Amino acid sequence: MSATHLAAESSRVAPRPAVQAGVLGTLSTVFRIWKNRRAFHRLGEMSDAELADIGLTRSDLSVATDAPLGADPTVRLRLLAEERVETIEDAARRAA
């Protein structure tokens, strides 16, 4: 077998791992979003005091539910909680 035959065979095989990696990456993303949505729905079962302990409010949950179906609502919740912490820290710095 010559080098050109090997090169031709390897070029036909090369796209497969890339396609498989793309499919596995997509499946991984879908699974992560599904898992995070399940955790998000469990947050709705928590009391307001429990939500406050983790830096969230009931209205934060309402805002995050407006995300499209394919989006991860926990990302929006993290951003809301981080904004709230920054606001509180800014207010504390101004008061000091």
Results as ranks from 00 to 15, higher is better:
L24E: 12
L69C: 03
H41K: 06
A49R: 02
P73T: 03
R76G: 06
T57W: 04
K35A: 14
A21V: 02
L56E: 09
V63F: 10
N36V: 00
D53C: 05
A95C: 05
I54E: 09
I54S: 03
A14H: 07
A52S: 05
S2E: 13
R42C: 01
L27W: 06
K35E: 09
L43E: 06
R94Q: 14
R42N: 04
M46P: 01
L61H: 04
D48Y: 01
Q20G: 02
R93C: 03
A18P: 00
P15H: 06
D48S: 08
D90P: 00
P15C: 05
L51H: 01
D72W: 01
G25A: 04
D72I: 00
R76T: 15
R16A: 11
T87H: 13
E45M: 01
R94K: 14
V23H: 09
I33P: 00
V75K: 08
P73F: 00
A67H: 07
G55S: 00
L61F: 07
H41S: 04
F31Y: 08
R94L: 14
V30A: 14
H41N: 04
G70E: 11
A64W: 10
A67T: 07
F40A: 02
D72T: 01
T26W: 15
A92R: 10
L61K: 07
L80Y: 15
D53R: 06
T65Q: 15
S2T: 13
R78G: 08
S11I: 08
V13G: 01
E82L: 13
E89Y: 03
A95T: 04
D53T: 02
P68V: 02
A64C: 12
R16T: 09
E89D: 10
L69V: 05
N36K: 03
G22E: 15
R93Q: 11
E86R: 11
L56C: 02
T26N: 12
R76L: 15
L61S: 04
G70R: 13
A81Y: 07
A21N: 08
T57P: 01
S2L: 09
T4L: 14
P17K: 07
L6R: 11
V85D: 12
A96D: 14
V63G: 04
A96R: 10
G25W: 00
A39T: 06
A96K: 10
V75S: 10
E9N: 06
R78S: 09
I54F: 07
L77P: 07
I54P: 01
V63K: 12
E45L: 07
A67V: 13
G22I: 02
A7T: 09
E45D: 13
G70A: 12
L6M: 10
P15N: 05
S10A: 15
P15W: 04
D48E: 14
S10Y: 14
S28N: 07
T26H: 13
T26A: 14
A71F: 06
V13R: 10
R42P: 00
E50R: 09
A18E: 15
L79D: 13
R93P: 03
L80V: 11
A14Y: 08
A52R: 07
A7E: 15
R94D: 10
T65D: 15
R37K: 11
D72F: 04
W34S: 11
R38V: 12
V13Q: 11
A49E: 14
A14E: 13
A8M: 10
D90Q: 13
E83A: 10
R37T: 05
I33W: 06
A3C: 09
A67S: 12
R32F: 02
V19C: 05
A95E: 15
G25S: 02
L6G: 06
G70Q: 11
R58K: 05
